[in-house]
Design a protein around this nucleic acid. Structure first.
Lengths: 305, 305
DNA sequence: GTCACGTATGAAAGATATTTTCGGGTGGGG
DNA sequence: CCCCACCCGAAAATATCTTTCATACGTGAC
């Protein structure tokens, strides 16, 4: 029974998705004049026709509903409704086909919609690049060190400072002891407290930010495990880093400073570190996470629906 | 005339083509149980649902026609018919697009390489969704207000606090007067200083963070232009917002708290705001940007080699 | 626990869109 | 000039979508 149904459908293949224009051309000779008008309208502007009802398309082509339906049948659809759905699909495909036209730099006179598209695209690119370039061995080693650390200090200034804080916030949530240091002086004075099994992380895109390198050096010399998250794996910061996690850099334009893509890249690395650590310390991380979640519940007004 | 047309479209934006799954996720919290069932079915299998009539989809989801129509409305379409067309389009896109297969949740025992791939993919997805769902009219209006503001206050706590700081850092770099407030008390006491033409921005994923809503309310009542960046366009925060910028929500898992994708989404929105403002104030923004860049130069050690 | 309220929900009526029916019109051949 | 066949559209019939309304359900107050 089911088999039979299937065979019927196979014999009369489900309405072909694309190549509609070709079909129209093939079938045109066997069409009557009015049907040809309808078919042509459909082939010409699938998107526009998809927006029309039978009556609308009939009026547009100067024919009647019946003719429209007949045309739809001839094209292989059970009725106009299905032709319309197919048209919508076709339109969507055409739409997406010519999508990646916004790869250019962001210009001063770009309309806001283009800005959104370009920014999103660039950041997606940055993520892909970062993920591809990230050394999973180094990452694994860094995660291992973090999971066992007694104390974790994170250094970052400027935009990287926010990334440092982001990482710290997350680590704290799973019960680790982490501090973010934006103040270079305090960072150094704290770094001298570190010892073996502690971890120090420096985040700097340029790899040459003295304010961040200095505390990392101190931590390194005191025997802590040191990690550098940087876009310059050959930069000064890596001298004092046991593990180097490389972030990627997107091309930047006048309006789009490097800080933007480096931040995206750094955050991905930091997220990977976090998830990695959360996996390794799952026993304690999971309850800690839900506990921190519940602690915040009362800070949210009940949604009024 | 053109103006009129534009405004009509602005008030009732043409239903977004893709990113439907994201929209479902964003709107799900404000849906009733039965509507959620319908929305989920639609998000799960666009192609399948496109083949169904209202009655069919109602039966499939164990609800009524009325509920299906209500859901379609909530998703931004005039009725089910249009949702169905959109679904057909979506299905066609998916057909040709063929999404990669690493869509699974991050598991405790995932090797580190998978974690990187999945995280990167998820964040890319979040970016795409956010960009697709972002209301460029609202964005433009927000940019306009920012460009003319005498003073800009940004409120955010927790993870959103970092986003607030990120925005503030950038705005300061192009010569605007901006402050980020993490402390709710200080935020409120500062908010009373705001007046017309000043701008207040609240960043909260849940849309219900009292600590952030309160200062925004005060700013709103003092006549400032208010902007809400939130994942819940129906949340309490929007009561006091002149412009609402919606961030998208990715599905979250135990190991990947919502904070992660909401941050990505918020940062994209914030970047768009920044670029938009930089465009409008190009005359002053460009020199300010390069000046701030040079100011940092001496903080970087000269790169060896 | 019980009551009252607001909200969510589906059944059915009402409105639209689609399909079918049917008869008038048209053009080509006899 | 007439007849036949077939194209075509008006209108009826049907399917589909939308709206309305009464009911049921959950929720919070007491």
């Amino acid at each position: 029974m089911t088999q039979e149904v299937k065979e019927i459908f196979a014999g009369d293949p489900p309405p072909p998705p694309a190549a509609l224009a070709a079909k129209v051309r093939t079938l045109a000779p066997s069409m009557t004049r009015s049907m040809q008008r309808v078919a042509e309208a459909v082939a010409q502007d699938p998107a526009g026709c998809a927006a029309l009802t039978v009556t609308g398309l009939a009026e547009l082509t100067g024919t009647s509903e019946a003719t429209v339906v007949r045309t739809a049948r001839l094209l292989g659809y059970p009725g106009y409704r299905d032709l319309r759905l197919a048209l919508a699909g076709l339109a969507a495909q055409q739409q997406s086909g010519r999508a990646p036209a916004v790869t250019a730099d962001i210009a001063v006179d770009d309309p806001i919609a283009d800005v959104v598209a370009k920014l999103a695209y660039d950041e997606q690119q940055t993520l892909a690049d970062t993920a591809a370039a990230l050394d999973t061995v180094q990452l694994g080693a860094a995660v291992g060190a973090l999971a066992l650390a007694r104390r974790i200090d994170v250094y970052g200034v400027g935009a990287s400072g926010l990334v440092a804080q982001d990482l710290t916030q997350k680590l704290l949530r799973i019960g680790l002891i982490a501090h973010a240091h934006n103040d270079p002086h305090l960072a150094v004075t704290n770094a001298v407290q570190l010892r073996a099994k502690d971890v120090a992380i420096a985040i700097t895109h340029s790899g040459a930010t003295g304010d961040v390198i200095e505390p990392l050096r101190v931590a390194f010399e005191h025997g802590a495990t040191t990690i550098a998250i940087t876009g310059r794996p050959d930069g000064p910061v890596t001298q004092y880093a046991d593990h180097i996690l490389t972030t990627s850099t997107a091309r930047e334009s006048e309006l789009r400073p490097a800080a933007m893509s480096s931040r995206t890249s750094q955050l991905l690395v930091v997220d990977c570190l976090f998830i990695g650590v959360a996996q390794r310390t799952y026993e304690t991380a999971a309850p800690a996470l839900s506990a921190s979640y519940e602690a915040l519940a009362h800070r949210h007004r009940s949604t009024p629906r």
